[in-house]
Amino acid sequence: MSKTYSQEQIFKILSEIPDPEIPVINIIELGILREVKFVNDECVVVITPTYTGCPAMKVIEDDIKIKLKEIGIEKVKVELVFSPAWTTDWISDEAKEKLRAYGIAPPDHSSQDKKVLLGKARDLKCPQCGSKNTEMISQFGSTACKALYRCLDCKEPFDYFKCL
């Protein structure tokens, strides 16, 4: 029965699943959904966590099963892979724009700041007013993948999606 759907169609259906913490982008735009394949009559969906301890992974797994059950695919296996390790570079430009519009400063297009050990923070644009006059309040924000900043011009605090 599940063979009546192509991988492309499955991808399209799964693109309706939002990230539980950041509902403006879906799991494909975020780069969490890696692969869909059929093994015998089972639909295998491969996902990768943003952070190893990300509590949203279990919710995403359940969402995938529910979504596929809705279209009649009962035999679903969700596999978790760590390699290649998730990176913020997988977030598409459109998704970055959606993040910004949602009030989260998107990650820069460069992974792993080498200066990280020296504790240097980077210049960030405020997602509200666009000012670069911002400062970091804390490297750890409302979720594992975000840091907390504030804009010194419009005074708004905002989340920054950390580069990984």
Partner: peptide, 24 residues
């Protein structure tokens, strides 16, 4: 070992943030 290597790549990214924090 592929699994150990994959976990290490992932964890190294995270620990980098932790270390930066504690070093500060």
């Amino acid at each position: 070992d592929e699994t150990i290597s994959a976990i290490a790549v992932k964890s190294h990214k995270e620990i980098t943030y932790h270390l930066r924090h504690t070093t500060e």
